[in-house]
Design a protein around this nucleic acid. Structure first.
Lengths: 338, 338
DNA sequence: CTGAAAGCGCTTACAG
DNA sequence: CTGAAAGCGCTTACAG
């Protein structure tokens, strides 16, 4: 840097005080600067390619136009990079610069990151979760906080989560609408918020079609393709299922595999629906997988906008926004055989 | 924020000047402060939970301990999030906060981002590319710049790229070592740096094994599974290939599909090797794909470290670091049939 | 050993 | 309409 041009240089060249330069360049309405002076100032500024030092401005204004995104290693997981992209887009459009850190969910790291960003005088925080969950926020983030893909136990801040229940309902409805009545559900092994809500959505759909819930149709798969493959095979053999709703697309890929091994074809013998619409998984499956899209971009956008509102003092109440999840139809659903 | 505690509050409570507080808290060696005074200062600081305002410090020191990562929409692509993770890890360990923006490679956006970060007085830039390429950097980034997964035409800054050529050579050698002699190469449709280098690596391996290069064995696939599927089928039928080296894992998935349609099994009838080691693609393929890993984490780490060195004035010459690419053996390679 | 002063580069009442 | 002054919260020679 070294020879940076400051407001003083502009003032000198325009033959005015630096106060006047500031007033002109910031378009301060109540300051009635003569047109001629303003003109000279602008000319000088542009000739010198003057750009205000944001540190000095921030120090003086007590406002930095920066935000921090704390994430649960989110930035390193393919699924959620859309959320980050959305935040950045909104930030840019609002003249905000964004700090990003990933804490791996470690409370110690979170704490120190929050402290560091506070010292850096950020205007607000987005706390982004790797997957839909109920979180305990690190202390001391202040009041300009928005939770993304998660929510706090008590609604202290705006939060946005996907409509897992509605999405699951849509997925299972798609199967029911094709005539399936024996529908298996391979749920997540972990008792997550999403697992719980997707089960509820599964039952919702069944109920609406007057199909009785049969607990033998729901099964929990451990991580890894093999567990899902086994689950799918069992569900077909033991529970006589003609369709499968899978907790996510990766589970669905496992299910494909289990079915194929039994000599069963998707969707001719068994229909399959996934969840997430994960790129290179759902679309690369053979046949391409019908699934439910997680609205990552929309959630990120909503969160960033909510934060901007808060920062500008126009923040509403601490709403938990539930973002709809669209069904994406591809080629893994057909009417039941026979 | 509002009632933040400043150095003045600490000074008041400790009964010293703010200069002394600063000296003590920064452990300034040449300042000989009495042990008793230092003790009082530290006590006061900790009682008040004082944390220095980094804006003020930055303004004064002309050094902010922040860096900016400009990316080519890198952060929104699954492949490269490892690079970002690595940068953040190194940054954190060095007390650096990181700004992140993705410019979608738009020169206009890049320019304004660079300007904004300059105004924010960042200490340096990482210019991160989506894929290995030769780039024109936006003007005015100054001297503390490192290029990640790309390099400039002239070596002005440290840069780190993957060893595409060596990786390709390793991939094809794996095939040759299993006894294959007719080896097809489905290369990228676009004339990228990577496409060029991987072709060179392919030829290197052939040469080492005394296998003559046959141009009918190399083919270019457009984006999308179908084009790769066709290419694979053609290569097997027309060129009598028993093994396939694919530009990347996604192409390999397409190849699997084309082979399967011909009633050909991987690896019993045709062996396949990919490139990238893309999560959920290479490992989820059936059979799991032998491939070459792109060293994203290592590259990100190297870039961040090089930037730290530069910032600290210990930067060496503008080296282009070529990072080795490891072969990852899975289940898609076998000896040729018969 | 410690304090007063200047200054980093801005913005914002306050005078005039 | 415009300038001098104070102040945001630090750090760093400089005195003493």
């Amino acid at each position: 840097m070294g020879q940076t041009v400051t407001i003083k240089d502009v003032a000198l060249r325009a033959g005015v005080s630096s106060a006047t330069v500031s007033l002109v360049l910031n378009n301060v309405a109540r300051a009635r600067v003569s047109v001629a002076t303003a003109e000279r100032v602008r000319a000088a500024a542009s000739e010198l390619a003057y750009a205000p030092n944001l540190l000095a401005r921030g120090l003086r204004r007590q406002r930095t136009n920066t935000i921090a995104v704390l994430s649960d290693e989110i930035a390193t997981t393919p699924l959620a990079s859309q959320m980050i992209g959305a935040i950045q887009d909104v930030a840019m459009r609002n003249g905000l610069l964004v700090f990003m850190v990933n804490t791996n969910g470690d409370p110690e790291t979170e704490r120190s990151a929050v402290a560091a960003f506070h010292q850096q005088q950020v205007d607000g925080f987005v706390y982004a979760c790797l997957y839909h969950r109920v979180v305990d926020l690190p202390p001391g983030m202040g009041t300009n906080v928005v939770v993304l893909d998660g929510r706090t136990r008590r609604p202290r801040f705006p939060a946005v989560v996907p409509d897992d229940r509605g999405g699951a309902r849509a997925a299972v409805t798609e199967l029911l609408a094709h005539g399936h009545r024996r529908i298996g559900f391979i749920n997540d092994y972990y008792a997550t918020v999403a697992a719980d809500l997707r089960l509820k959505g599964y039952r919702d759909a069944l109920r609406e079609f007057g199909v009785r819930f049969d607990r033998r149709c729901v099964v929990y798969a451990e991580p890894g393709l093999e567990s899902s493959a086994d689950a799918a095979a069992r569900l077909h053999e033991d529970a006589g299922v003609t369709a499968l709703f899978c907790f996510n697309d990766r589970v669905a890929v496992g299910a494909y595999r289990g079915l194929t091994r039994q000599g069963l074809a998707v969707p001719d013998d068994v229909s399959v629906v996934g969840f997430d619409d994960q790129e290179f998984v759902a679309d690369y499956a053979d046949p391409p997988l019908t699934t439910v899209a997680l609205p990552h971009y929309a959630m990120g956008q909503w969160a960033a906008r909510a934060l901007v509102e808060r920062i500008n003092g126009r923040g509403g109440p601490a709403e938990v926004r539930v973002m709809p999840c669209q069904l994406v139809r591809r080629a893994s659903v057909a009417r039941p055989a026979g």
